[in-house]
């Protein structure tokens, strides 16, 4: 600290009691910026889910059959299941480091709405996992002989589905962050909630492969996403308060 002799500069005035500092937008942006910076500094965490995603898709032809007709049939499901598991794999670390170093306590004690901070964290998580998974999906589609007509459906369904996976997974992560070994529990909690997303996601891809209209499936995925966006942050925030107070 300062030398004993040096006088501390005058501290600022204490804030008035009525002063309202409510800027949810700037908190959201600051959170996203911070999370991306953190992820960029720990790049190995960033590529983990992507490598997993790629590995699952590479192993399937080896394990089942390299026959294009078989793989074409399996492709929508395999890509979607791999994306789902890759997201789940990355979920446990979402709040873990914040919990361990005390940042989470500070987030809970900040005057900013927890809803926004939590939403920022989930959006950043999606930018780092869901978005790259979506962008990589056509590559996996080609590896698994997914017909070209199915690519659009695959990308769109993942684009709408993976944010929902992040939002739901974050609820599980928030509930288990106080436990030493939360990894298994997270899967048990979250997998049942992932099932509707998986069903409509693969249905959208299959519909686009066979030339049937996809809009219905995509609309349902969009509805799930809208529901998740408005309700999941509330659940995550409440779960975090419980986890930290324990």
């Amino acid at each position: 600290m300062n030398d004993m002799g040096t006088k501390i500069r005058k501290l600022g005035q204490l804030s008035g009691t009525s002063e309202e500092v409510f800027r949810p937008g700037s908190v959201l942006l600051a959170t996203i910026r911070r999370e991306l910076l953190l992820a960029f500094r720990r790049r190995s965490d960033l590529v983990n889910p992507l490598i997993f995603f790629l590995m699952v898709a590479t192993l399937f032809p080896l394990g089942i059959s390299p026959e294009p007709s078989v793989l074409t049939l399996l492709a929508p499901g395999v890509v979607w299941v791999a994306a789902l598991l890759a997201t789940l794999l990355s979920m446990d670390s979402l709040f873990r480091s914040d919990f361990d170093d005390g940042s989470l306590e500070q987030i809970l004690l900040s005057p900013q709405p927890l809803f926004m901070v939590v939403l920022g964290k989930v959006v950043a998580h999606w930018i780092m996992t869901g978005l790259p998974l979506t962008l990589m999906a056509p590559l996996l589609g080609i590896m698994l002989f997914l017909p070209a007509e199915g690519m659009g459906g695959l990308m769109l369904s993942l684009l709408l589905g993976t944010p929902t996976l992040s939002l739901i997974g974050a609820i599980g992560a928030a509930l288990t962050v106080g436990l030493r070994k939360g990894g298994v529990l997270i899967s048990l909690l979250v997998l049942p909630l992932y099932i509707p997303v998986l069903i409509f996601g693969t249905a959208a891809v299959e519909a686009s492969v066979t030339g049937l209209p996809v809009t219905g499936h995509l609309a349902l995925l969009g509805a799930l996403l809208a529901l998740g966006f408005s309700l999941a942050p509330l659940a995550i925030a409440a779960a975090l308060r419980i986890s930290v107070s324990g």
């Binding site: 500092v21 600051a30 910076l37 720990r42 170093d101 005390g102 940042s103 500070q106 005057p111 900013q112």
Partner: peptide
């Protein structure tokens, strides 16, 4: 409550954003 991979300044900037004021 200090993030190990961030610098001191980045840590404080985050808290400034959380504080809002």
């Amino acid at each position: 409550g200090v993030k190990a991979v961030l610098t001191a300044e980045e840590n404080l900037r985050w808290y400034a954003a959380l504080d809002g004021s």
